[in-house]
Amino acid sequence: MAETVFLVAVGLAAGALLLAGIRFARGPWAVDRTVALDAMTIIATSLIVAFALLAGRRIYLDVALVYGLVGFVGVVAVARYLEGGL
């Protein structure tokens, strides 16, 4: 029961990642793509934690933590570049 519901939740989150990916691909401007990337980073972090649960390995939690950190720094760097660079 719990596992079925959780698998549905993971499927929904993966679908949300794909939908955000459509906005990432369509743009039309770099700012829109970065907004989509920001949302995708957080959904992907949550999915990595879900994978840690499904695989039963705690080490993937550290992967999620580092991925979240790097994604945040990446989004802020791109945003600062867009603000001042062009």
Binding site: M1, A2, E3, V5, F6, V8, A9, V10, L12, A13, G15, A16, L17, L18, L19, A20, I22, R23, W29, V31, D32, V35, A36, A39, I43, S46, A50
Partner: peptide, 28 residues
């Protein structure tokens, strides 16, 4: 475990809402 699974389901529903919002809203 069942409470947790339904909480996760609610969370992923908000993910889907965010993605629909990204697609439907008119500007950045």
């Amino acid at each position: 475990a069942i409470v947790g699974a339904f909480l996760s389901l609610l969370g992923s529903a908000f993910f889907v809402l965010a993605a629909i919002g990204l697609l439907r809203m008119p500007d950045a």
